[in-house]
Write a protein that binds this DNA or RNA. Structure first.
Lengths: 125, 125
DNA sequence: CTATTTAGATTACATTTGTAATCGATATTA
DNA sequence: TAATATCGATTACAAATGTAATCTAAATAG
């Protein structure tokens, strides 16, 4: 498990989110699920699915005439990979510097902060 | 202030970090500062500076024969913009979900957690 | 003053990404 | 069965990105 996660482009992430929500799904089901979330032609969505297949981020079942697609990586695995490269690129690699900025900016509500405190405490002890 | 920050590509971020560290700088100074950090030919670095100029992320002073370059946006401004789009794309838009994952993964040291607690406390009260 | 180096301007070229349309085979409908 | 709708495969095409090289004018070294 856990081979290097391939790069997932921005629009491809939208597709992945749909598949993580529920899979396997046909291309048409993905199209429906994207109603209101993204404004792409069905052909575009199909292209994105094809690219994700080519990248081996999405698998396909060809048993039926109409293919079904499913993720080959867990969402949190991909999130971690993205987060890591994001933090490295933007914040010198540490979550803490990002967090410092958010806290200073008051980007967290009192409720958020309390929840975070609780999570920290639960973990620490 | 605070016009929409243009997109800054991954390799362009390396250049920006150098300029935020210290500016204005000539292209050659940027090249030197990148020694060991990136493995680009001087021409490549020059191209990246040109693109950043075209995007209006970097300004240039042409008074001297050898130009000097400087950032047109503050680092934290760009960080916030990137963070926002990153969180939206990957974690549904909230820092908290990202944090939850990191805490669960034990990606934060005890020391980190203590520092975060202190920051939170200072902010909260 | 001529040859060479250097800096900026212009051009190059493959890959990735965004956003589809067309083509061809099969299934479905009339 | 003939016309049509549908799905997958293939092709399209511009912008952004990664990664430079060439061209040209000016400065500097001999």
């Amino acid at each position: 498990m856990a081979k290097e996660v391939p790069n997932i482009a921005e629009s491809e992430w939208e597709i992945m989110k749909i598949l993580w929500e529920n899979s396997p799904r046909t291309a048409n089901e993905v199209v429906s699920a994207l109603q209101g979330k993204a404004d792409w032609k069905p052909k575009t969505i199909r292209t994105l699915l094809d690219r994700l297949m080519k990248k081996k981020v999405v698998g396909v079942n060809k048993e039926q005439r109409v293919y079904t697609f499913y993720p080959l990586y867990a969402e949190d695995e991909c999130q971690r990979a993205e987060a890591k490269s994001f933090l490295k690129r933007i914040y010198g690699g540490t979550l803490k510097s990002m967090l410092v900025q958010f806290i200073e900016d008051d980007a967290l509500s009192e409720k958020d902060m309390n929840e975070i405190r609780q999570m920290l405490d639960k973990k620490s002890k």
